[in-house]
Design a protein around this nucleic acid. Structure first.
Lengths: 189, 189, 189, 189
DNA sequence: CATGAATGAGAGTTCATTCAT
DNA sequence: GATGAATGAACTCTCATTCAT
C-alpha cells in the first residue's frame, strides 16, 4: 500500500502549500501543518521531519511541474512574439493571484538556508529568457537590444512586483504596465 | 538623565539594525537583542517591549533620515538628468552592499504586520519618481514616455534586485544593466 | 507453522541480545529491535509486547542453557581443584569478552524491575560455590576456610570486575589476579 | 546576587542526587528534576541544560569532597592497621545504606558516556590502596602479599557488593565477611 | 531604575502501541 | 497473521515576559 503513504504525502504538500503561501516559510511550524492536515504529530513526522523538508518537497514539485517551456515552443516554430506574449501573460496571471503564490516563502526559505536550488532556478530562468530574446532578434521580430540588460529588467522587475504585491495592494495595472514596457522595448513596431 | 535613556535607545537601534539585516525580521528575538547590546532583559524591556517595537523605531529613523530629496533638487534648479543620475547611483550603491540592507527585514515585517508604513513609503517613492519624470519631460530632457509605466519599471526592478541580491550572488553588473536600461528609456540621445 | 513462529522468536532474541549487550536494558526501545531484526512493528508485537518481555525471555534462555554444573561434576568424581579451576576459567573467559556480556543490561533490568529472577540466580550461584568449597574441604584438597566468607569474596569480586570491565578498560590481568587470590586462599600448598 | 543562583544550584544538586540514587542515571528526566525541585522548566534550564550536566556537577562535588585521605593518615603517623580498619569501615557503612548511594547512577552514566572521570576515580582508588598496603608491609604490620592482586580483590569485591546490594537484599553480613577476608589476608596474626 | 532568576506557554521530537488493510 | 501508517503521551528545549531584589 505504498499508495497510501504517497497519497498522504501529497495531501500534506497540498495543505501546507496554502500555509506557506499565507505565512511565508519562517512562521510555519510543524504543529501548524498538523492542524491543517488533521494529522497527529507522529503521523506528520513519519513523512517529513521538519518544515524545511516539507518545503523542499514542495519546491521540487513546483520546479518539476515546471512551466511553459520556451525552448519547446521555439522548436514548434511559434513566433517569438507569440512566445513572449504567452510568457508575459503567464507571469502576470500569477502575480494577479498573490494568495496562491509561494514567493514570500521561497524568499524566506532561501534567506534562512542559503539554498542552491534557488540559484539554480534563477539561472534557468535567465537562460530561457536569453534564448527567447536572441531567437526574436534572429527572426527579425525583436529590436537589437542588449540581451543581458533586457533579461535583468524582465526578471527583476517581475520579481519586485511579485513580491511586493503579496504584502501591498499593488494597483492592478502595475503588472500590465511592466508587461507593456517590456513589449515596447522588444517588439518591432 | 533623559539623555542617557535616549543614548541607550540609539545604541539598541544601532546594534539591532545589524541583527535585522543579517537575519531578517522574523528570526530576531528579544534575547538576541539582549545579547548583542549586552543589556539585561529588564533593561531592554524598559526601552522596547517587542522586536516589533524596536523595528518600528528603526523604520522611523530610516524614513526620517530620508534620503536624497528630489523635490528639493528640482527647486534648486538641477537638471532632470543630473537628478536621475544621482538617484540611480544612490540605489545602485545601496544594492552593492547587501550586508547593510534591511530589505529582507522590512519585507518580513511588512508581511507579518500588514503595515501601512510600508504602503506609505512606497507611495512617496512613486510620487517622487513621477515628479522627476514629468519634470524631465517638461524640460525637454526626457522622452515622452508613459510616466506610470516608467515608474513601475524603475521601482520594482530595483526592488527585485535589491531583495534577491541579499540571498543570491547576483552578478555585479545586473544593477548597472538595469540603470542603463532606465536611462536609455528616459534620456534623449 | 508453529515452527516458524518459534524460529522468528529465536531470531529476535539473538539480535536483541546484541543490542542489550551494547546499550544496556533501559536504552533499548521496541523500535530499535524492529530495526535490527527487520521486523515490522506489528510483527514484533505479535511475539513480544515490551522490551521487558524480550529481555525476560533472554534471561530465561541464559539461565536454562545454564552453565557448567558443579553438582554434576562432583557426582562424576572430579577433584575439587579440577572443578575450581574449570569454574574460575569459565568466569575469566567471560570477563575477557565484555562486548558479549549482558551484565549491564541484567543490572539495569534488575534495578528497574526488582526482579526475583535475579535474586534466584544469585542464590543458586551461592549454593553451588558453597557445595564446591565444602566438597574440597571434605576431600582434604582445600584449606578449612570460612565457607560463606569465601563465597562472598568469589561472587562479588567477579561481579565487580565483570561490570566495570564493560565500561572501563580494565587491565587484562585483573581477572587473573583475582583468580590467583582465590586459588591461594583455597588450595592447600 | 550571585549567591542566589549558587544556592539554587546547590539545591538542585541536593534534590537530584536523591533522584539519581533511586532511579539511576538513564531514567531521570529534566522533568523529574523540575518536579522534585519545584522549579519551572526554564528555571532549571538556566542552571543546567541536561541531566548529564546535572550529574557531572554532582560527580564533581562528590570527588572533590573526597573522602578519607589515606596519604594524609600515613603522614600523620597512624598505623597501617588503623588506616585499614578505618577505610574498610567507611566502605562498609556506605554499602549498608544503599538508598543514598549513587553507584548505579554512576555506572549507568559511565556506560552511556564513556566518561574519563570514572577511569580517573578508579585509578586514584587503586593508587591509594597500593600505597596503604606497601606502607603496611614496610611497617611490618602486613603480610608480604602480592600488592596488585590484593588491590584488585579489595576494589572489585566491594564494587560488586556495592552495586548488587542496591538491587538485591544482600545479607547484612556479606560486607562484613568481605571485610574479614581482606583483614585476614593482610594483617599479621 | 536596572538586573537577571524564574515562569510558563509552545514548538520540536521520539516512541510504545493500536488498527485498518 | 503481518504490515506499517497513524495516534498520542511524554520529553526536550527556547523564549517572551514578569518581578523580587
Amino acid at each position: 500500500m505504498n499508495n497510501k503513504k504517497e497519497k498522504t504525502r501529497e495531501y500534506i504538500l497540498e495543505k501546507s502549500s496554502q500555509l506557506f503561501s499565507e505565512k511565508g516559510f519562517k512562521e510555519v511550524t510543524m504543529k501548524d501543518i498538523c492542524e491543517v492536515t488533521g494529522l497527529s504529530r507522529g503521523g506528520l513526522y513519519s513523512h517529513f521531519s521538519s518544515t524545511r523538508e516539507v518545503f523542499e518537497a514542495l519546491l521540487e514539485r513546483i520546479t518539476s511541474e515546471d512551466e511553459f517551456d520556451i525552448e519547446e515552443e521555439i522548436k514548434k516554430g511559434s513566433s517569438a512574439v507569440e512566445i513572449l506574449n504567452a510568457s508575459l501573460t503567464r507571469i502576470r496571471k500569477e502575480i494577479e493571484k498573490p494568495e496562491e503564490s509561494l514567493s514570500i516563502a521561497i524568499y524566506e526559505y532561501a534567506q534562512a538556508n542559503d539554498s542552491k536550488e534557488i540559484v539554480r532556478l534563477n539561472q534557468r530562468a535567465e537562460e530561457k529568457w536569453s534564448k527567447l530574446i536572441r531567437y526574436g532578434i534572429e527572426q527579425g521580430e525583436f529590436k537589437k537590444v542588449n540581451v543581458n540588460e533586457m533579461v535583468s529588467v524582465i526578471l527583476y522587475s517581475y520579481q519586485g512586483v511579485r513580491m511586493w504585491s503579496k504584502i501591498m495592494p499593488i494597483k492592478k495595472n502595475t503588472a500590465i504596465q511592466i508587461t507593456n514596457n517590456i513589449k515596447n522595448q522588444l517588439i518591432i513596431k
